[in-house]
Write a protein that binds this DNA or RNA. Structure first.
Lengths: 233, 233
DNA sequence: TTAGAATTATGCTTTAGAACATGCAAAGTT
DNA sequence: AACTTTGCATGTTCTAAAGCATAATTCTAA
């Protein structure tokens, strides 16, 4: 059974933060209701205004959480990597989604009915704390983002976006090349600028030997400088 | 005893969302550890980078949660009214505060040690749900704010700020005058613009008979128009 | 009561970044 | 190979909003 075997793999990788919090009965409930979905590159997992029904767990691939704004402009709010959970906030807030989730690259995502999650939280305080902690971290991140995206200049915002990519997805084996390959448009959507300006500023950073750019392959040459640019404003 | 009597008043006003979730023993624990603090206008309740120790409950007055940004520019993140709770996010995230809280006007604020709150959550699932719900609502709000503050134009942002003030603090008895009197600078800090532009745009709205302005007294004349301006972008 | 400080109001100048246009190059399609 | 599509790069123009200067007004304190 593909569901179980993938799940076992996940567990064996000891990445499932939630899993270790559960008792055997709860684990059985989950394996019985857990479903795996495969999404193609850029495929939408759920969309703004949808009604939340599932807890999603990214098993393989990369997922972006974003919000469509004025004139088709998109703002990327958060990025997910295996094994992370998403899609639960709106359910807990008892409102439709205010953002959309899409696969950045071919991804496997598990789903679990939120009603089940809810009843499990009722009986498992560790699980409650898991979500309280996640929500609190995310809220701090969003509050900080409000200020940096509105007040920092383009170079600072791009530097910060690159650092976010480092922190989220890390490097290839060479220890320099970003392990995510995204279109300039997505870089722009991450750092609140137009695609033109993302291209321009990436070029500027390359010129200044802070990074090198080869298509979508970005090598971080001077991370310290990057962090400095990000901080100054 | 002033602590108890004020608390009783709060309860009698049936505004304490948390209170009704508690059993008698928990209520006693709270009254024993609850302390009331009075803050003057503009006094800081806690500051960014402080370590969170208390759950704060606004009893009387108005409080702003804000973040200091580039060049002394401030961004107001959220506004609180009685009876609302704040200051708990950082504790749950296990990190220092990323924002500061200050009294907008003379305010009474109750404090309760977070360690106590934590142990109460451990034994009271309704309390856990209260915070999960609050955090989820706030996170949705912040995510939305990221997009509106970065993408909407000045008029849209000011309109939105005014609507926020309506929703948060409502009107005086005339049903038109905003029940909050804030400096232009704070209006600016709420809607991500300079003080000059807040003044200018308020004047423009007055010219267009959407509002009237008399010092810090703002009357909403055409709320529908305001909502329309807020939506367009 | 007057001096001085803050706050509000407005006009003028400057600029960061958006919008637009165009050129290339790579990659897929027929 | 000829075509189309898509994404990257760069130069030019334009504008929303910041920055700055200066009054007018209100508030504060001696």
């Amino acid at each position: 059974m593909i569901i179980k075997s993938t799940l076992e793999k996940v567990i064996s990788e000891d990445l499932a933060a939630i899993w270790s919090l559960l008792n055997p009965e709860e684990k059985r409930l989950i394996t019985d209701n857990f479903e795996i979905h495969n999404f193609k590159k850029n495929q939408i997992i759920y969309a703004e205004k949808d009604h939340p029904m599932y807890l999603w767990c990214l098993l393989k691939g990369k997922v972006k959480l974003y919000k469509d704004g004025i004139g088709g402009r998109q703002q990327i709010l958060r990025l997910y990597r295996p094994i992370q959970y998403f899609g639960y906030r709106a359910y807990f807030a008892n409102e439709p989604y205010v953002s959309s989730a899409a696969a950045f690259e071919p991804s496997s995502v598990g789903s679990l009915p939120m009603d089940l999650v809810k009843s499990m939280i009722d009986n498992n305080r560790d699980l409650a704390w898991f979500f309280i902690h996640e929500l609190s971290k995310n809220l701090g991140g969003s509050d900080t983002k409000i200020v940096t995206l509105t007040q920092k200049h383009i170079r600072g915002r791009l530097a910060e976006a690159l650092i976010l990519l480092i922190d989220n997805y890390g490097f290839e084996d060479d220890g320099k090349t970003l392990k995510i390959y995204m279109a300039r448009e997505d870089v722009a959507n991450l750092s609140n600028m137009t695609t033109s300006n993302a291209i321009r500023t990436l070029s500027a950073f390359a010129q200044e030997r802070i990074i090198t750019v080869d298509g979508r392959r970005i090598k971080i040459v001077d991370e310290a400088k990057l962090r400095q640019i990000s901080k100054f404003g």
